[in-house]
Every structure is written in structure tokens, then in C-alpha cells.
């Protein structure tokens, strides 16, 4: 195993708990995107470019966007509830 591979493993291993430790969902959506990029780099370093390509798009674009849109919907729903009260 090369130093680059060990480094990538450490970054991913340390990054995953960090994403969980961020408690604000909006910030978490961004953190998960950055973490996904690190994971894609890991796949690339371990010579799996096909997987890395899917990982980049799914984790940096598709997933954070869905989380953000879901949060927007929840927030709007809460505002409507408050207006009613």
C-alpha cells in the first residue's frame, strides 16, 4: 500500500465521523458533499475510476440537493403551522 492510499484511507476514516458530528442538517448536507468527494478520490487512488465518477456526481450533486430540498419543504411546512397558530 502506498503512502497516498494510506493517506486517503485516513482522510475518509476521519471524515465520516465529522459529518455525523455536525448537528445542523443544512451544514451536514454540504459536509456530506465534501466527504463524498474525498471518497471519490479514495476510489480513484485505489484504481477504480468508474466507481469514482459515479461517486462524484451522486454524492456531491444528487444527495445534498435532495437533502436541501427536503429541508426547505419541512421549513415551509413548519412556517405554515406557525401561521395557523
Amino acid at each position: 500500500m502506498t503512502a497516498l492510499q494510506i493517506g486517503a484511507l485516513i482522510v475518509v476514516g476521519a471524515g465520516a465521523p465529522l459529518v455525523v458530528l455536525v448537528r445542523d442538517p443544512v451544514r451536514q448536507a454540504f459536509c456530506v458533499g465534501v466527504f463524498g468527494t474525498a471518497l471519490a478520490l479514495l476510489f480513484f487512488i485505489f484504481q477504480a475510476p468508474d466507481v469514482a465518477l459515479s461517486q462524484i456526481v451522486v454524492s456531491t450533486v444528487a444527495l445534498p440537493l435532495m437533502i436541501l430540498l427536503a429541508l426547505a419543504k419541512i421549513r415551509e411546512h413548519e412556517e405554515e403551522e406557525e401561521e395557523r397558530e
Binding site: D50, A52, L53, S54, V57, V58, V61, L65
Partner: peptide, 24 residues
């Protein structure tokens, strides 16, 4: 990426998501 899947890394799935991202 969609059309060069047989030659270089990538293919229908990866390229399809990139295409969707373009509209996004």
C-alpha cells in the same frame, strides 16, 4: 462519458448523471 464507456472509464450510468446535472 456516455458514448465512450467502452474505451475509457465511465459509461451510461455515470454519464447519465452528469447529463442530468447539466440541466440541474
Amino acid at each position: 462519458v456516455v458514448t465512450h464507456g467502452q474505451i475509457t472509464p465511465g459509461g451510461g450510468f455515470q454519464g447519465g448523471v452528469v447529463l442530468a446535472a447539466a440541466a440541474l
